[in-house]
Design a protein around this nucleic acid. Structure first.
Length: 620
DNA sequence: ATCAAACGGTGAGTGCTCCT
DNA sequence: AGGAGCACTCACCGTTTGAT
């Protein structure tokens, strides 16, 4: 299907929803949200929280749709065996404890969440991570399957990551006795196509892409399933596989005449759709209208009748859900940064050289302004400029000048990257980076320029080295980080922590820094990054990931330094300290990461938001 | 087992238009 | 002139698939 079709479809359904043709989604309760949202907008982070939990609970008497505040209304009293949702651990005692929970009754608030789903409605279950959404989904699945003859009903549980598939499959297998459950993902090496597995199983746990491929190839139809559950359903938008799958659903729905849009008639042909999420998010919205629109869009995409949130038993839920203490720690930049000054000097010389070379070659009318770099090196605009410069150099005809310019350019890029490293990490890391890049550089063309460039650096190298070793110019961010980590682990030596940062390279330099720092060495920090990048680009293989995680659980590694890979889905029970190292993403990740910690001890979120850093600098 | 390619989401920055 | 809003590009991260 053409993607423009998808969009149109979506729009028309949305209109239908809004006009009340199919399901009247009441907007009025949203009014109660207004204050909260505008308040958030003023919040500096403004990501601090975005609880869609405050969304309308349609058809539930909702005179008091309250939000779960991030601010700890109640300090979590730390139940001993926490939630059954986190079954990532597969050690013996963990499995034991989870099997114990399997027979437990649903908690009241979970019953509340499940209720509309049990009635067969299309719902989105919206509750914080750790509240046991999977348990709710299980209950709905069970009820759904129990109601019909064996084999007549098929449930598909969709996830967006391979590891989640394994996690959820384990939960379903353990708790859904009497039914046949199977899991499938791109990583599972099976020659049996999904369409053949389907008749032999009652519940299938899938990564979304698999189902999407089958639908596209016409091997499966939406009505082959009677219940679809979307884990982390806030992804159901734009071109995400979830949304593409729902496009098939909506296709089928629109195929039938409007007169047939009677709930019971629809149920005959279409599966029930259940979404699970901690937070629907508000997209790029920065005001109420667009926020509401975003949420309505998601609801339309998932053909949702009702948003299920906890209202009546909120207090009970708060006992179980982890409400971490969250701090924002403003940190200034280095008061004096000789490294930056020296490197900036070198870069200016190179920039001028490029201008010269370019001038020799280029015709007059080529505007020289293109070659004027932004004043602030080591910042975003400069990144843009450097990369656009590459294109300009590439079109120089004369080979020798092009080569020379290119040599200058690669140096410039290296220095720029080094400044970025210096910003978030140690000067020595930045210096090492320059050194290693320099050693990689080929000089086989024997250009004068290479010597010139090398000399430029070598002249300054001893001075830089000296500064790098000088404690006076330490990065304040690192000083603060060390301080916090040291205190946290002194207070509770058996803590586990995660530091989130933006790039893979930064995870590496932070790890090295910790290993070379006396007070942090003992934590034995390890990096956790995604599997996509090749190993030589600081990527990891999935087996390495598993290793690191098991070390972390076992306590051999007490601190993880991770990119966004650890944000979603990975439930790491023991973790009670989360630090976002100058890394602010979006409100969903925020809510997710909050859920990563367990309620034991005193979980904390600590931010180093860039915004604050800047503000602070100005005020000083 | 490993890698690259294709694809999608996100944030940040740029340049354009429109409005005040 | 200056700001808001929008579409666009880029870099980065993630996933899956398929080839080696």
């Amino acid at each position: 299907m053409d993607s423009s079709n998808v969009v149109d479809m979506r729009a028309s359904v949305r209109e239908a929803v809004e006009e009340g043709l199919s399901y009247p989604v009441q907007e009025s309760p949203l009014d109660t949200v207004d204050e909260d949202i505008s308040q958030e907008a003023q919040n500096l982070g403004s990501l601090e929280e975005s609880e869609p939990a405050e969304e309308p609970v349609i058809e539930v008497p909702s005179n008091d749709t309250r939000s779960f505040e991030v601010e700890p209304l109640i300090q979590a009293p730390a139940p001993t065996v926490s939630d059954d949702e986190t079954l990532y651990n597969r050690t013996a005692d963990e499995t034991l404890s989870s099997s114990e929970t399997s027979d437990l009754e649903l908690r009241n608030y979970q019953k509340e969440l499940a209720q509309p789903g049990l009635e067969g409605k299309n719902i989105i279950v919206c509750a914080p991570t750790g509240s046991g959404k999977t348990r709710v989904a299980l209950e709905i699945t069970k009820e759904h399957l129990d109601k019909a003859d064996r084999g007549r009903r098929k449930v598909v549980f969709l996830v967006n990551q391979v590891e989640l598939m394994e996690q959820q499959l384990a939960v379903f297998k353990k708790n859904l006795t009497g039914y046949r459950t199977i899991g499938l993902s791109g990583n599972v090496d099976t020659k049996v196509p999904l369409s053949e597995l389907l008749p032999k199983n009652d519940v299938i746990v899938l990564t979304a892409q698999i189902l999407l491929d089958q639908l596209r190839d016409n091997l499966l139809k939406i009505h082959d399933f009677s219940l679809m559950i979307y884990d982390e359903c806030h992804h159901t938008k734009k071109g995400h596989p979830y949304n593409n799958i729902m496009a098939f659903y909506i296709d089928q729905k629109l195929d039938s005449p409007v007169a047939d849009w009677h709930p019971s008639a629809i149920q005959e042909r279409l599966p029930q759709v259940v979404g699970l999420t901690a937070s629907l998010g508000v997209g790029k919205a920065n005001n109420n209208e667009t926020a509401i629109e975003h949420i309505l869009k998601l609801c339309a995409n998932l053909d949702t009748e009702e948003l299920s949130t906890v209202v009546q038993h909120e207090n009970e839920m708060l006992q179980y859900v982890n409400v971490p203490k969250s701090d924002i720690v403003p940190v200034g930049e280095r008061a004096m940064d000789p490294f930056k000054d020296i490197i900036t000097g070198i870069m200016e010389e190179i920039e001028n050289k490029i201008k010269d070379l370019h001038g020799q070659h280029q015709l007059k009318e080529r505007s020289a302004t293109d070659l004027d770099p932004p004043a602030d090196k080591g910042k975003g605009p400069y990144t843009q400029w450097v990369h656009s410069l590459k294109k300009k150099i590439a079109v120089i005809d004369e080979q020798k000048i092009r080569w020379s310019c290119f040599a200058c350019w690669t140096n410039l890029l290296t220095y720029h990257e080094a400044l970025l490293i210096n910003e978030d990490s140690r000067t020595i890391d930045a210096l090492d980076y320059i050194r290693s890049e320099n050693s990689k550089r080929s000089t086989h063309r024997n250009l004068d320029i290479d010597n010139w460039l090398q000399q430029l650096f070598q002249e300054k190298e001893p001075t830089i080295s000296e500064f790098a070793a000088n404690d006076t110019f330490k990065n304040p961010k690192l000083v603060k980080l060390e301080d916090m980590l040291r205190k946290a682990y002194e207070e509770k030596p058996d803590s586990r922590g995660i530091v989130f940062c933006k790039t893979r390279a930064l995870t590496e330099t932070l790890k090295n820094w910790m290993l070379e720092t006396e007070s942090l060495k003992a934590l034995n920090p390890k990096c956790l990054v995604g599997t996509n990048a090749a190993v030589d680009k600081k990527g990891m293989t999935s087996s390495q990931q598993v290793d690191v995680l098991s070390y972390f659980k076992g306590g051999k590694v007490k601190l993880l330094i991770a990119t966004s890979v650890a944000e979603e889905g990975l439930d790491i029970k023991q973790c009670n300290l989360v630090i976002r190292y100058d890394y602010v993403t979006n409100e969903i990740a925020m809510v997710q990461a909050r859920g990563v910690c367990c309620p034991r001890g005193r979980p904390r979120m600590l931010w180093f938001p860039r915004l604050h850093v800047h503000r602070f600098g100005q005020h000083l």
